[in-house]
Structures are given as structure tokens and as C-alpha cells.
Amino acid sequence: MELIVNNIELIAFYLFAGIATAAALAVITVRNPVYAVLFLVLTFFSTACVWLLARAEFLAIVLVLVYVGAVMVLFLFVVMMLDVRTDKVREGFIRFLPVGVLVATAMLVQMIMMIGVQRLATLPLPAEVPEGYSSTEAVGMALFTDYILPFEIAALILTVAIIAAIALTLRRRPGTKHQDVGDQVRVDPASRLRMVSMRSEGKPGGKP
């Protein structure tokens, strides 16, 4: 029992990391694309938990809010709208699997050998933070002082994205029916209502 209590952080890490890895595997193996997206959500969520353990609360919350909350929901919409034919996409999956596995293994072994996982283990853990320390505040301070210029450049990139998206998708087709508020306001009764003068008829059922 004491062992568990002392190593609770380590246990939690392996739990979340394990779920993240398993969910990531599921993303690329499940047949249904909607399930794949949902598993990706699980992957992000577990990763956010790992980040929490590393005392990066702000990043963890942003990951959940931005990726899970916004990006993945959008993804889900797109997947549902596109009606992806999985059988077509999967053609040749088994045929290319051996090559893929070979390349992936070779890369993994190389990176483990070169980068040296053991050396990483000697790096110090993040320092214990003082009471009342807020990583949100720290990120905000860094972002709006030292990194204000890169922050503004990122804003420019978003502007370009908007301009590009509109330039590439907006089509002005002549003859489409759309509202013109100006026309609607300017309308004059004469053009909508035609007054016809008619001889009055007698009351129905009355004397002629």
C-alpha cells in the first residue's frame, strides 16, 4: 500500500501513457473512421493528463479545449459529411504492412540508440513549484513580453489563412437568389401591392 502511495505519480504516468499509446494504435487500426476520431480524442485527453503530471496545467487545459473541444469536433463533422469509404482506403494495407513495420522499427531503433533514452533519464525532473505558482500566468507573461513579436507574426499567419481560404473558395455566381437588405429597405409599396379599383359587390345573400 505504501509502495503505491509513494509512487502514485509514476503509476498515474504509466496508466495515462499506456492509454494514450493504446488509443493511438486504435486510431490507425479501427475500421470505422468515426471511431478513429473518437480514439484520437482519447489520445489527446490522455496526453493532456500526462502534461498535467508534468505540471503544465495550462498546456493540458489548452490541449483539451482547443484540440478536443474545437479541432476534433470539426474533424468529426468532416468525417461524417465526407462518408469516407474505408475499404478503398485500406486497399494494400496488408501488402505494405511488412515494409512499413520494417521502416518503423529501423527508425525506432536508430532513434533510441542515437538519442539515448538512458541519457534522458538522467535529466532532472521539473523543480517543485512554489505554492500559488500559476503556469497560466507564466505562459501569459512570456507570451506578451518576450515573445510578443512572434505572437503578432502568428496573427499574420492566421490573417493569411483567412484571405487564402476566402480567395480559394468564394465563388460569385451570377443569377443566384440572395437577399439584398438595401433593396428590401428601399422597397416602395407600389411595387409590392397593386391597387385595383373594382365595382363593389352587394352583400352575399343580400338583396341585389
Binding site: 507574426i153 499574420l156 499567419i157 493569411v160 489563412a161 484571405i163 487564402a164 480567395a167
Partner: peptide, 8 residues
């Protein structure tokens, strides 16, 4: 910033 503009 440079590359995204050129893709578009």
C-alpha cells in the same frame, strides 16, 4: 508566413 502565402 512565407510558405502558406505561396501555397495559396
Amino acid at each position: 508566413l512565407m510558405a502558406l502565402s505561396t501555397y495559396a
